[in-house]
Design a protein around this nucleic acid. Structure first.
Lengths: 230, 230
DNA sequence: TTCGAAAATAACGTATACTTAAACTTATAC
DNA sequence: GTATAAGTTTAAGTATACGTTATTTTCGAA
């Protein structure tokens, strides 16, 4: 049983339910619990060294986010992502992020205000030059993440995070199959320019097309490589 | 205690947790549990004639949707919606629905395919002529709801539903304070035309501006009428 | 062997019991 | 009278117990 129920020492205020949620989510996103795997409540509870109660609560949250499915007598199943799912997810990300770009462009920020974005695109260029795709992916994520945060819309921020998480597994596996993301870097600069020019329409439109294209590429790859479910 | 634990007669397959979720959500959206009200788990459980376990599970889902907040020793609190919250919510609805309009316009539907939308705008016109605002609101909802459903994107559908629910209380209370929604009917027709013309850019743009304006009106009303929290 | 019915199993939904610690009360010192 | 400390209460978090029922297995008949 949970080795440290009454947490000596550290003031760990994290409930078991929260721990379970975090742990399971990490394992799913990190592909340590691959799509399709099933576990009974009891089994998960044992894996996590706790009782079924907090386990169930974590499962409910994961199911709400669309990461798992809970079928009454078959336990919790990690949901595979079909090309169709990916398409749905990218339509949502596209809608939300392009809106975010427009909102940020309407804020009248100066170069200082968008420093995190400038740093991100710079890093993307460096990484691309160095052929370091992992660094590129990190910088890319930094750009998207900071762009959304600049809106200040908390709901928007957490929504986009949720849907980006969903695509994470797929993006990572396909990272090295994709053509060099030169166009992607151009797109980001264009969005950045539009934001600095205070031009929401352009920012929105450029970002929308950027995500739309990226989504298509990803979905085509899923089909081509017979990664029909992952 | 739950009068019908082993459900004789009817094949009621609805779990208590699900019942609790539905019941609480209806009471919140219907303003029977007004914003700001707090209840301890025990109290909710008693109100619903069940134990704390399914009650907690329902609360988790409601908290995930942003309808309530659960603070460790103060129970569940129905969240008030400030103008700031409303602004966040409308930014999201605007982003998602305008994307939906664009997607539907890309489907190449004919008049038969968008019949539900045509019926809805017709009803809106009739209701406006008859000065029946409640009927108008119902038709308006029908239009938005069917528009989104036509995309076939299940995730998008349920997301938009969630955020529309959040604005529901506010829209209803302000319904009779708003100017006659003549412009709104025009907007809907314009979106419909763009869909029939297979013009995603126009559909998206018109719908975006429509929701953007509606959102502004609503938020201004919240401020003016000192409905700063509801 | 195959099918179907009956029995056995066990997973889930729910209730309840237990534990911890936050919030409130009381008491005591200054 | 205020402030602090000790004691009390109680809500939430977790574990466990229990009943129901879906699933699986067993077993007999065709």
């Amino acid at each position: 049983m949970a080795s440290d129920h009454h947490n000596h020492g550290s003031k760990s205020r994290v409930s078991f339910a929260e721990q379970a949620y975090i742990e399971l989510k990490q394992q799913i996103l990190g592909n340590r619990l691959p799509a399709g795997t099933q576990f009974l409540e009891q089994e998960i509870a044992e894996r996590l060294n706790m009782s079924r109660t907090p386990t169930r609560e974590a499962m409910i949250r994961l199911a709400n986010e669309g990461l798992v499915e809970v079928r009454p007598r078959h336990g919790m199943r990690v949901l595979p992502i079909s090309p169709q799912d990916m398409s749905e997810i990218y339509q949502i990300i596209t809608a939300l992020e392009s809106a975010a770009a427009g909102l940020v462009a309407g804020l009248g920020l100066d170069r200082e205000g968008v420093r995190s974005l400038i740093e991100a695109v710079d890093k993307m260029d460096v990484a691309l030059q160095a052929d370091d795709l992992d660094a590129w992916a990190a910088a890319d994520h930094q750009f998207h993440s900071h762009l959304v945060r600049l809106t200040g819309n908390q709901r928007l921020i957490s929504l986009i995070e949720t849907y980006n998480d969903q695509g994470h597994r797929v993006r990572m596996t396909t990272l090295h199959m994709r053509p060099k993301p030169e166009k992607s870097n151009e797109d980001h600069r264009a969005v950045l320019d539009a934001i600095l020019a205070n031009d929401p329409d352009t920012a929105r439109e450029v970002h929308r097309r950027h995500r739309e294209t990226a989504g298509k590429v990803l979905i085509d790859l899923l089909h081509e490589h017979h990664l029909t479910h992952m």
